[in-house]
Design a protein around this nucleic acid. Structure first.
Lengths: 153, 153
DNA sequence: AAGAAACCCAAGCAAAATTGTCGGGATTGT
DNA sequence: ACAATCCCGACAATTTTGCTTGGGTTTCTT
């Protein structure tokens, strides 16, 4: 029931890129993202590769290159990121393919899984990277000290 | 992100016991439950053991014994079953213990995980075994053939 | 009292998934 | 040219999952 590190690290990376989007707008080298978020470079590279294929980030190759969001932070949802890295956010497989479960139409469990599936997706799709930036800004304003290094969760 | 077989099989077993509750009220032997739900006996035994410790089923030992719900189907929620077998339904660990995440108070990710956590729990706690029985009865009424063997999902 | 029908429990274990690492290739700015 | 980058597939370590095995213990029936 836990998210794997793919989803968790992916959100960290995307949040990092959302901050960069506001600040410099330039591409961020893998190494910089990995250091700020304290993630292993080669592993993060895999995740960013998947996010690129999913159309959520784009890359600039060669020196001074790096990764950047493919569109504005308010147009990327947490759900898009998680589904790209984790696959369909379904509790059970029988919801994924159309014919994954033969008895699908008359299964007492199915409605339960459907409700959870819809609920989870509705929530994660309602939160954009921009929302996360704002929420965190508000949170920081309330607390006193500023500290923008490595916050995991 | 998938439920493990523990949660899935557990719901099947509890649904089976909910049906039995209405019909006979007598304890159901492990073997009978396993056969109806097509689950491995020794494995199911583990799950029922956990459900017993969790207070959701009670047992009658000795010959003619078996497992039965510890209270009425309308008083047992899907959430109780899943949490008993899967642990806290949290996307990330930092929500579980109080001090699992040191920076908890000012973490940009935390609010996201909290919202999902609350959403999932609200949904699974809103569905009782009785609801499942009713939903399935309605579903069966709509379809024509009756068939109460092994429906997985 | 014997036997069978049941639950109870702790280890062990193979397969699968997760979480990375490694090595080399391709592209591009300076 | 050269260095900074991204790109990609293979593989290795570790953990988790999904069971199985081999014993117990309790209680009903005869």
């Amino acid at each position: 029931m836990k998210l794997s590190t793919r989803g968790r690290y992916g959100i960290h990376a995307m949040y990092d890129l959302a901050q960069a989007w506001r600040a410099t707008r330039g591409p961020q080298p893998l190494k910089a993202i990995a250091q700020r978020q304290r993630l292993s470079e080669p592993y993060l590279e895999q995740l960013l590769g998947a996010l690129r294929k999913g159309g959520l980030v784009r890359t600039v190759r060669g020196a001074q290159g790096g990764y950047m969001l493919s569109r504005a932070p308010e147009e990327i949802t947490v759900g898009q990121v998680l589904r790209t890295l984790e696959g369909d956010l379904a509790f059970v497989e029988c919801l994924e393919g159309e014919e994954a479960c033969d008895k699908s139409a008359r299964c007492p469990m199915r409605l339960v899984w459907q409700k959870v599936h819809e609920g989870v997706n509705r929530i994660v799709d309602s939160i954009t990277l921009e929302d996360m930036l704002k929420d965190y800004a508000r949170l920081s304003a309330e607390g006193e000290k500023t500290d923008d290094t490595h916050l995991h969760g």
